[in-house]
Structure formats: structure tokens, C-alpha cells
Write a protein that binds this DNA or RNA. Structure first.
Lengths: 254, 254
DNA sequence: TTTGCATTATTTGTATACAAAAGCATAATC
DNA sequence: GATTATGCTTTTGTATACAAATAATGCAAA
């Protein structure tokens, strides 16, 4: 069959405005697709198929997948390809623990360092997020909520924490996509706005308190307590997919 | 010139015992070389040269460098190759801030979760570290000290924190290599031993206190206050090397 | 001697070809 | 009928070839 898309880097406009090299574009597209739930956890990500879709060689796809793998959004199984990660309940708990830690530090630092421009950008993101949820685009909403937290990390002016946050936010979005209990969700934009207020007034204690409550609300909405009773074999056994290898001891990746 | 080394994966024994695929081996070798100061900050890492040394194609080297880049040990400059990272004083401060945060959490979790086997492994590492410093192998000592902190992270049983710690420890080692004031250094193994004692007796407060003092001692040994007055142009302007690009706005990589 | 430009050479970026491994289906055996 | 064997297909891993970008060199001019 012929190449699906002659596109070089066209859809770029609608997505995260990355700098423009091919593999960044591919990375951003796959990333967004996962976070917007257009790619379900467990989905196989074939290198050749993706290459054909984006009109690039496997080399590029491979680099994008490797990066996604390092961030924990994709699971790379040696000789067996990549799949969209599907965090277990235990993994989810660990991720939330780490995230509280990082968010607390980021909040304190942001109170200290955030500029007026950055606060304005944050407000812009929140209103965009709100617009998404209003028009019912839950996927984009989740992604934008993540971008808010990432931008906040940038305002904290600590490079390692930004990197950690990128990984944590991505994985959290995946968890939300996987575990959030049915109902309409995420009025988080309101909490985001109040958080910006506290940061703007340089009230560290208040800001941290709001952030911690925000974290509580996020994982309060998940039904992590009982994992079971899914009718989907993939989901049920997803926690085995990574470690199942013929090596005697379990693989020690991550 | 002919291929330098016919070796497939021989020296593996002496280094980090990684699972054995080619790019893991290459990764570990470069990583260790950097942490043991056999590769100085700023050193250019040519793909072809490395490929010839290890007897593999650029494909493998490229993957290893990409991974090192993601961990912050190597700086990847688009179209201009990779160099060993040389963190500025400001970057060093950020790394230490993040590391305190992570080490504190890891210590608390390790008190809760560390098994007897893991504590034994930690003690083994410390004695090996001590042996290195006794015999004057400072490079290997620094690396083993890092491995101690990494193993401690594993004992904390939180996957994201292990990943963060890997990156932070690597970069810290680089900073120590770059900034540690002359004298003989790192009697850290004693502090490590007392830390294990506190963890073994499940005394969280004591363990955290020891860890925080340990962190104080590490960055107390560095002369971060005054960066300047080097007679080496490279060192003076090293903090520019990454961002110097022709793009109008500074590159926003990390 | 230094500065600017053009040409050459080196190095990285990407695609592709080949090798190896894993998955799949069919077939043979118990 | 279930289970294991075996060959075929698909997919990943690695090397290499070619294109593009960057750095180096030499020369000319100020």
C-alpha cells in the first residue's frame, strides 16, 4: 500500500509547539495521542506502521519511542516492540507519591521565582483547559491540565525538577485515563486558578496547601482501591507484560 | 586504521553488571569513564571514534549517547555532536536542591521498606568504596559512592524516585569531579555506614538527619562560591556551550 | 597581522538493507 | 483432541550508505 500521509510536518500547529525537527514532531504526536486517550494503554506501537503514518523511517520512530520509554509513557520490551504503558495500581501509588513530593517543592520555588509573564501564561493555559472541558473534549483537557503543571515547574526554575515533572505528569495523565471513575471529571481548572492566585500573592504556605489538596482531589477521583473485575484481559494482566521474559531473574528495567 | 578492539563484551565483568545487550555495555563504559573522571567535562564524544573503539556501529553509540543525554551527563547539541556535560554553578545548585529533596524521601522510604538483604548489599558496597579510597582510586570511589545512593533508592521501592536518583547521582558525581577542592576527599563511607545503622534500626528521624548532614558535607567540600578566575577559556565559558545556537530564542532543551 | 570569504573536509542526520529474533500457523505425534 | 515440532511470516536489532549541516582550511584583501 502507498504511503499514508505525504505530510512533512503539517499538523504541528495544533499540537505542542516543539522546535520542529522530525523526531520531535513524531514524539509530540504520539505523546499527545496517548495523553488524549486516542491510544489506549496496552496498544502495540509498531515501528513500521508508525513510520508509514508519519512518512518517516523507522530510525525516527525508534528515537521517539525510546524517549517516550524513558519517560515511562511507553513500555519498551526488548525484541518485542513497544506498547503504551498501563501502570498497575502499585505503580500508580508510587507515581503519586513522587509527584506530591515534586509538586510541593515546585510550588515553593514558584512562589519565590515565578515572573508576571509566567503567571499570565499559566492563566492562559487554565482558561484554555476550561474551554476544552466545556466543549467536552476530555482528552485535550487532561493534556492541558498536564501542561499547566509542567509550566508551573518551569516557573520554579530548577531544571532537574522540570525533567522529573515532565515524566510524572505524563504518567499521571495515563493513570487518570486508565482509572478515573466514570463521571464527568476534572473541575481542576478552578483549583488551578486559585493556586495561581496564591503564588501571585507570594503566599507559600497557602500555595502549598492548595497544591496538596489538588493532589488529594486528583487521586481521590481514581478508583485505585479495587483494581479487579475488568473484562479486559490486557488490563488484567498488563502488569506482567513488561517482566515476562525468559531470563531467570526478572528484567531490571526501571 | 584497523578496528581497535575486537572485543564483543569482555570488560563487562569489571563494570556495572548490566544485562548484556551491546548498547547497555557501551552506555556503562562511557558512563563509568565520565564518573571516574577519565573523560573530563567538555570532552567531545565523536560517534565514529567511539564506534571504532567499541567495535560497534554509530547506531549503538548514538543510542547510548542519547540515554546519557537524557540523564544529563552528556550534552547533546543538534548537528554538533555530544560533549561531556560541564554543569555551571547555578546548575549544580539546582541539582543539589533536587537531590536533597529526593534523598530525604528515599531515606524515609528505605527505613520503611529496606530488607536485610538490601542492607547487606549496601554494607558490601560501602566496604568496596572504602577499599577504593584506601588504595587511592578516587575515580572508582566516587562511582561506588554513587552506586550506594542508587542502591539505597532501590531499597525505597519507588520506581520513579529510582529514576530521578540515577540522574541526580550521575550529575552530582560530575559536579564533584569538576568542583571538589583539591585535598583528599570523601570519607563519605563512614557516613554511609552510620546511615545504614540508622536505617537498620528503623529510626527514620535519625536516618534523615544523617542523610541531610551527609548532603551538607558533600556540597561543603565543593568550592561553588567562586567560580571565576580560571585561566582556561573553556572553563570560563562552559556554561554557554549548550545554548549557543543560531535560533533567535534560546533553545529550550531542559 | 588580522579579517572576511570561499572551498574542502569532517561529522551528524536519516533512510535503507540485511540479520536475528519472536510470533504464528500448520502439521505431526501421542 | 490436545500438545509439541517445525517451517514460514512478521517485527525488531544492527550496520551501512547517502544527504545535509557544520567545522576547518587556505587564500585574498584590508
Amino acid at each position: 500500500m502507498s504511503q499514508q500521509l505525504p505530510l512533512k510536518k503539517p499538523t504541528r500547529a495544533s499540537k505542542s509547539p516543539r522546535s520542529g525537527t522530525q523526531d520531535d514532531v513524531v514524539y509530540a504526536h504520539i505523546f499527545d495521542a496517548i495523553l488524549e486517550q486516542r491510544l489506549a494503554p496496552g496498544t502495540k506501537l509498531s515501528e513500521e506502521a508508525l513510520g508509514e503514518i508519519f512518512g518517516v523511517s523507522r530510525t525516527i520512530i525508534r528515537r521517539a519511542l525510546s524517549r517516550l520509554g524513558h519517560e515511562g509513557v511507553v513500555l519498551l520490551r526488548p525484541n518485542r516492540g513497544a506498547v503504551v504503558a498501563s501502570p498497575s495500581v502499585e505503580e500508580a501509588r508510587q507515581i503519586f507519591y513522587a509527584r506530591r513530593l515534586v509538586e510541593k517543592a515546585i510550588t515553593e520555588l514558584a512562589v519565590e521565582h515565578a515572573t508576571a509573564e509566567q503567571l499570565a501564561e499559566l492563566r492562559r493555559l487554565v482558561s484554555e483547559e476550561q474551554a476544552c472541558f466545556s466543549r467536552g473534549d476530555r482528552g485535550a483537557g487532561i493534556r492541558l491540565s498536564g501542561e499547566f503543571h509542567l509550566k508551573l515547574a518551569e516557573a520554579a526554575k530548577n531544571a532537574p525538577l522540570v525533567g522529573f515533572q515532565r515524566s510524572l505528569v505524563s504518567q499521571t495523565s495515563l493513570i487518570i485515563a486508565q482509572y478515573e471513575s466514570g463521571g464527568r471529571s476534572h473541575c481542576s481548572y478552578d483549583e488551578h486558578n486559585r493556586l495561581i492566585d496564591a503564588i501571585e500573592s507570594r503566599d507559600a504556605a497557602k500555595a502549598v496547601e492548595l497544591m496538596m489538596h489538588h493532589m488529594d482531589h486528583i487521586d481521590g477521583k481514581l478508583n485505585l482501591e479495587e483494581e479487579g473485575a475488568s473484562d479486559d484481559l490486557h488490563a488484567v494482566f498488563s502488569h506482567l507484560l513488561g517482566t515476562r521474559k525468559k531470563s531467570p531473574r526478572g528484567a531490571d528495567r526501571l
